[in-house]
Amino acid sequence: MPSVSMTVNGKPVSGEVEGRTLLVQFLREHLGLTGTHVGCDTTQCGACTVHVNGEAVKSCTFLALMAEGAEISTVEGLANGEELHPMQEAFRQNHGLQCGFCTPGMIMSGVALANRNGAPSEHEVREWLEGNLCRCTGYHNIVKSIMAGARAMSGQS
C-alpha cells in the first residue's frame, strides 16, 4: 500500500493508505482526529471542512494521497491548550450551534473567511456559507458568530 506523509496541526504524520482513501478517513480513522465530521459525503454539507495549505477544502472530496507534503489544519488544532481560538470563543458566546454536528466545518470555514476578510459583512458571511449546511439553527447565530470571530481574529473587539 502507498504511504503518505503530511503535517497535521503542526505535527508530522504518515501512514499507509489505499488510493481511494479520503483525507477525512485518514484524519478520523488513522489519526483518531474525529472532530472533522462526515455529514453528506457528497461535497455539499461542509461538515468535513479542513484547511489544506491554508485553503478551506472539503476533506470528503480530497484523496489522502493528494495531501502528500501538505500542511493540514483541523478543528482540533485551533485551541491553544485550554484557551479557545477566537472563532471557537465567538461560537460559544453567540450560541452559534445547537446539535453541533456542522460546527467543526462552520468554524474552519469561518476561519478561512476571516483569513481573507477580517471584517466580513452579514451578506458576505451568508454568501460564504453556501458550502456549509446547518439543519438546526437557521444560521442566524452562526452568522453572528463568524462576524464576531473574524473581528476578534483581526484584533477588533
Binding site: 461542509g46 471542512t49 478551506a56 477544502v57 472530496t61 470555514s109 478561512a112 460564504w128 453556501e130 458550502g131
Partner: peptide
C-alpha cells in the same frame, strides 16, 4: 461556481 471550498479546488 459551487461554493468557496469547491472554488478552492
Amino acid at each position: 461556481i459551487g461554493d468557496p471550498m469547491v472554488r478552492n479546488r
